[in-house]
Amino acid sequence: MTMTPEKPKVITASPPGKTARQRRISMGWAAFAVPGILWLVFLFIVPMYTIFAVAGGHLNPIFNSPVPVWNPFAWSGANYVAVYHDFVGPTSFIGPILGRTVVYVVIASILSLLIAYPAAYFVARFAGKRKGLFLALMIAPFWISYMMRMLAWIDLLQTNGYINKALVNLHVISAPVNWLGGKSVTVVLGLVYGYIPYLILVLYAGLDRIDQRLIEAGRDLGLSRTQTFVTITLRLSRPAIITGMLITFLPMIGDYFTNQMLSGNVATSMIGNLIDAQLLTTSLQSEGAVLSLFLLVILLVPILYYVWQSRHSEDSVM
């Protein structure tokens, strides 16, 4: 899907520039877009600006609540300085949280890819007549509520849950483990389980679109199975891998609920948990605003890359 509207290539004898009729038609189409545009201005651009206004604002000394400043020339740096001191200095505490977020998300992303790619590859290439069945099973989790999927693991991972029972019976562990009491393993498992359906669908769509004849040609020309896979399939699925990784990486970074449900412990808290907690205390809301801007700036490169990709490639799967 190309997102860049290309100018219609019409060869006409008329001089360049739009005719009155063309302009009128164009305005007719514009009428369709206007409600959506106004909506996005007032309910996306203005809200995003509000984060800046709160971040650059100050605290009401009596109610201890944030007072936004709308004029960008009057923005104060006080909240930014406060967040800076959370990063460095004697009272800093964000460093470990940020580091933990990055470690969790990187491990979860790599694990997701290692699990999702082979499965998507099999369904796209070898499922044959059973493709419909595999596809339905593979898509099912995408349709199942995230909360339901987390709840399912809460049931299984409880102290007297099936996982502990099975592990004790198999003598892997001697006593039940409190998996839900702040274990990094559990949080990473939750992230992988939560976001893998989105990744696998993007990978499947990318792999399914690879021309089978290229693979056959590779084999005919004497490449081994592994060589064909590396030089043809893997190379051609690279855009899908990148898109899929982005589509899971971006929400994982801002995730706070997976962590809260499966651990609820400060020992595993991520940057999303911190922002969520700051939002609940009025006096810390402006620092929360600064932190979310910080997050947005870090993620700007991958976000813009994704937007750019979706405009320039055929596989702009959501």
Partner: peptide, 21 residues
């Protein structure tokens, strides 16, 4: 562009923008 951008940013940032507005 704005529309695609609004789709890709983490939902937490999106939600915070709405909370403040």
């Amino acid at each position: 562009f704005v529309m695609v951008f609004s789709y890709v940013i983490p939902e937490l940032i999106f939600g915070i923008a709405f909370f403040f507005v």
